[in-house]
Amino acid sequence: MLTKRIIPCLDIKNGRTVKGVTFGNLQDAGDPVELASRYSEEGADELCLLDITATLEGRSTFLKVVEDVATAVSIPFTVGGGISNEKQVETLLSKGADKVSVNTSALLDPGLITRLSNAFGNQCVVVAIDARYDEGKWQVVSHAGTKPTGIMATKWAIEASDRGAGEILLTSFTADGTRNGFSLDITREVTQNIPIPVIASGGAGNPQHFLDVFTQAQADAALAAGIFHYGIVRIEEVKTFLKEHGVAIR
């Protein structure tokens, strides 16, 4: 039976894992390769590495991190952050990444999804969607959550899927960092409307939240960062809890 996936996410800046409680308040959360290895041993099903560096120098440091993580772990990982063309994807895959995620660049140029899917296969293309709850509606926000787009999250997820995305990484900007649980309503709406897997993200605070997003919102995978980095919840703990509650888990 296909299992639900638990995916720790590492935000990388200048070669280090960082975690912001709110944007601009970044704390060091450790060496990414050490963290990746630890998570892999603790039962992470996949990893996600996000490049949040803004400088060119940081970019090359990030590539080295990708290469080192690929050497160290034998589970799949997705790489995202600032990806806007085929050449970058080719480079990242050649360093050992398995999938790439695109966010703002896909909103600006939706054809990118199709081009990447045709060039590398749809299994490789994750479209990341940041959704924010405003006046009764879930709209997509771009540029790391700073720009409202006026596009409804579910509509964009359907379009991304139609254009060749292999997976949707749906982050609730509203729940992110709160540790009050995933946004179940928008996650459910997206999972019910597209034929590709959905990774829920934003708001994880305890094992019950993972159970809720899998059983009540039919997410295929759930992603979290801070709670794992700071040891608030351990991956093994989440997986044991899910197993006890009848969720198929590796």
């Binding site: 039976m1 296909l2 299992t3 639900k4 996936r5 099903d45 749809n122 299994q123 292999g166 997976e167 034929p195 590709i196 897997p197 295929d220 995978a221 590796r250």
Partner: peptide, 11 residues
């Protein structure tokens, strides 16, 4: 199948 691709860990 419910989702295509078949993506993830299976037994």
């Amino acid at each position: 199948q419910p989702k295509i691709p078949h993506m993830g860990w299976n037994s």
